[in-house]
Design a protein around this nucleic acid. Structure first.
Lengths: 339, 339
DNA sequence: CTGTTAGCGCGTTCAG
DNA sequence: CTGAACGCGCTAACAG
């Protein structure tokens, strides 16, 4: 129709009204007579007009876009959370701008800036660091920061709105479950030490071990980085030691599965010789051999809820500083044996 | 500093120059005297100015944002491609807006509209459908469409710039490899029938079977939807039939792994009784039992190249209609036995 | 090399 | 209920 780009002005001309009326007819249909509204709609159709949302955002100072910052998009754990976020975003007419940190905090800061540059209204972080610069002494949210929600992870010091599970309790439950099956020498493969979430899981693990009367567990605790490879690596270390534990608890399924393979290959049988429990309940866990007993996190719900909390902040019902914990669930499959 | 939002105007005042000069000093530093540039930079620092990229985009009509449309973000195959896209985007100061189709073509169209609404400059699709409305008779790219690149999949009829591998040749190679190990009854689990990529793989499979003198293979061809579950489902079907094939070739690793589990559980041994070959070389494939022989696609490169092609279109060196094929590679692990 | 001026497309006054 | 006029922050065109 219109040679190049049709604007609200062209629609106004065709409909024989003013641009203001077109704008109103589109944004607040009830603030305009139904007859004129129809005229406008017809003109919109005839001209093939589509709103320039850039101009709108510029004018209204709201982009309806949220940055989602992910540590590693390759990790399917995050994929489900993103899905949850995306779905709620979409049904509220929001869009998400994806930021993959790829293990470089510099990247995180760069994505954090997008809000200052007005490219996005807020930021949901699945990472464990706050993607803004701030002095170490800061104890509360900086009012200059854009709306922020932390899904999964949280910050030790600054109270940021967030969603997650009770990691300490979950880890404790994992250990208790193994204890109930008769295990006492239980090794733990944790994630990075600087992750608050991992610190909580370690606490839960230690608490469980203490219940078994074991307080010195240093030689049973290992660290990976949540990848399959790192789980395999740790298992190699473990296997080369003199005495294997009877059970292994990993802070995520990927590491559990990585370890599982190395252990099986070294000739020891799972679960007969060693039991394994994972964390997350990733899809693949049900397809291992043996299928992995693990602790499920409600990933989609975590994502959905964090986007909902973002909307609450954006739409004014500020819930600043609130942390919500969702229920987890132990999924029993075949990787644990009774002693 | 500035009470609320500082704009280029405030910087100009502080620096004692005009707004145009500030704009230039920031965008084309070499078009301005180094002395004034320093003054401006200092003023920027002093005021805490950050460019309102919304206003800039509005003015320049370029957002430096590209929509990436994914069929299912949960599938780790796509995650690596996104990573490749994202990296090239970032290093060219572009951002990506993620669209998860979630099996609903309506969603795809909605994301397709973002360009018309000026929220993005172009669209990279990892899906098999073109996310714009067009009449069935269309045979070429509509000049009104925004720059479009199809990664992985492509369209049968309309020549859209794209990146991928030679799926027919790859599937043929897979069958030939199995044939060389002595297999003749080779089943094939394909993806959705309406996917051009799957049609190509089927062609390759049939060609390979023809080389073995087998032209009637209908009872050996199955369909899944690329998920673990669908692979398992097909395997159940297969196992309930009277006679198992000696080898199984799946159009992706997830289906291969799903089938693998069901087959092992039904008491038949892999690879002794039945061999399996997958497609993609997803991370988990190396951690199955047995580790999966598969055909690797260069996912990251596919992503990177498709973003590069997008940039070429965006920056004017239009490469419209060009399809590039990247090399694939057979990764031999332990899931195939010689007969 | 720098300043002046205009205008991108929209939403929002304020009158009528 | 509708129209005229303004301005968001920035860059592009043109003068100086």
């Amino acid at each position: 129709m219109g040679a190049s780009v049709v604007s609200i002005k062209d629609v106004a001309t065709v409909a024989g009204v003013s641009t203001a009326t077109v704008s109103r007819a589109l944004a607040n249909p009830d603030k305009v007579q139904s007859k004129t509204r129809d005229k406008v709609l017809e003109a919109v159709h005839k001209t093939g007009y589509v709103t320039n949302s850039l101009a709108r955002s510029f004018r209204t100072k709201r982009t309806r876009t949220v940055v989602v910052l992910v540590p590693d998009i390759t990790n399917s754990f995050f994929a489900n959370i993103i899905q949850g976020i995306e779905q709620v975003a979409r049904s509220n007419n929001y869009r998400i701008l994806l930021g993959d940190m790829q293990n470089d905090p510099e990247n995180a800061l760069a994505y954090g800036e997008l809000c200052a540059q007005r490219q996005a209204d807020g930021l949901i972080s699945l990472c464990r660091t706050i993607p803004f610069e701030y002095s170490k002494s800061r104890k509360t949210v900086d009012p200059k920061w854009p709306p922020l929600v932390m899904a999964c992870e949280y910050d030790d010091i600054i109270a940021v709105p967030g969603v997650g599970i009770d990691n300490e309790a979950a880890a404790l439950d994992g250990v208790r479950y193994l204890a109930k099956q008769g295990h006492r020498r239980i090794a733990f493969i944790n994630g990075p030490e600087d992750s608050p979430l991992c610190r909580d899981r370690l606490k839960g693990y230690k608490k469980g071990m203490a219940e078994l009367g074991q307080r010195a567990v240093a030689d049973l605790v290992f660290h990976g980085d949540f990848t399959l490879d790192s789980g395999a690596q740790v298992a190699r270390q473990m296997c080369s030691a003199k005495k294997l534990p009877t059970a292994l608890f990993a802070a995520n399924d990927a590491m559990a599965i990585g370890a599982l393979q190395v252990i099986k290959r070294s000739g020891v049988s799972v679960p007969k010789d060693i039991s394994i429990v994972g964390f997350d309940d990733v899809k693949f866990s049900a397809y291992c051999d043996p299928p992995l007993t693990t602790i499920r996190q409600p990933r989609r719900e975590i994502g959905a809820l964090s986007m909902q909390m973002m909307l609450d902040q954006l739409e004014g019902e500020a819930a600043r500083g609130k942390r919500i914990q969702l229920p987890y669930e132990l999924i029993v499959r075949d990787s644990v044996a009774t002693i």
